[in-house]
């Protein structure tokens, strides 16, 4: 990870915009932003963003690599698509936020204790195992992602909700022992592995 980061710094030196264009999903759109600020007023968790989308785009162009990639801001994106339907330039802002977060994670720069970062990784790992999300295990992992004691506290806080879900048959303890999944989970994993290889190889090409 760290060497990926070093390699990227070497390669792009002073051109962070170029780095974003080559490595971040929909990154080639960033230069189209006209800084009107409409998107920044659209985020539901806006008050929690240190740098709203418009500012992130400005910082990318100004080469503020470290500040952008270590930022907690894009992890606050709820995927509400308010920005996308409002942007006069038609930027796929939601995906750029996802792309920035994902790229920062790959480089090892994403803030370590960011809760959505942890949840997102758990979610992906959970679904890859069987091809379908196991809500019970995901929930348990989520409660315990900050350590055992914290987990017990969270789980106790959530106990009533769990009980309500269980009583209405919207949660099943049986899920803990396997549960739903794809029959061809192996095939799915092979597809994902190949897709990851292709994506990595493409980045390598851009980066060399």
């Amino acid at each position: 990870m760290a060497d990926l980061n070093v390699a990227a710094i070497e390669k792009y030196r002073n051109n962070f915009l170029k780095e974003v264009e080559a490595n971040v999903e929909e990154g080639e759109w960033v230069k189209m932003c006209m800084q009107c600020g409409v998107c920044s007023g659209s985020c539901p968790l806006g008050s929690a963003w240190d740098h709203p989308p418009q500012e992130l785009f400005m910082m990318i162009r100004a080469g503020k690599r470290e500040e952008v990639l270590t930022s907690d801001s894009m992890w606050m994106c709820t995927s509400c698509y308010n920005c996308v339907v409002r942007c006069p330039r038609g930027l796929p802002i939601t995906h750029i936020m996802h792309g920035l977060a994902s790229y920062a994670l790959r480089l090892g720069l994403a803030p370590k204790n960011q809760p959505t970062r942890k949840f997102a990784v758990l979610f992906w790992e959970n679904l890859v195992k069987t091809g379908r999300v196991n809500e019970l295990k995901l929930g348990l992992n989520l409660y315990f992602m900050n350590g055992f004691i914290e987990g017990i506290k969270t789980a106790l806080g959530m106990q009533k909700i769990g009980l309500g879900m269980w009583k209405t048959k919207r949660m099943s303890p049986m899920e803990f022992f396997g549960g739903h999944g794809c029959k061809d989970a192996k095939g799915l994993q092979a597809i994902l592995k190949k897709a990851r290889e292709i994506e990595d190889a493409k980045r390598q090409k851009f980066n060399s």
Partner: peptide
């Protein structure tokens, strides 16, 4: 038959672009 998860709007971080679309 045998459909899989779509990864919703949260799988992106670890999943990346192509794996997500492949799902």
């Amino acid at each position: 038959p045998d459909w899989n998860c779509c990864s919703a709007s949260i799988g992106y971080a670890e999943g990346g672009e192509l794996p997500r679309i492949a799902l």
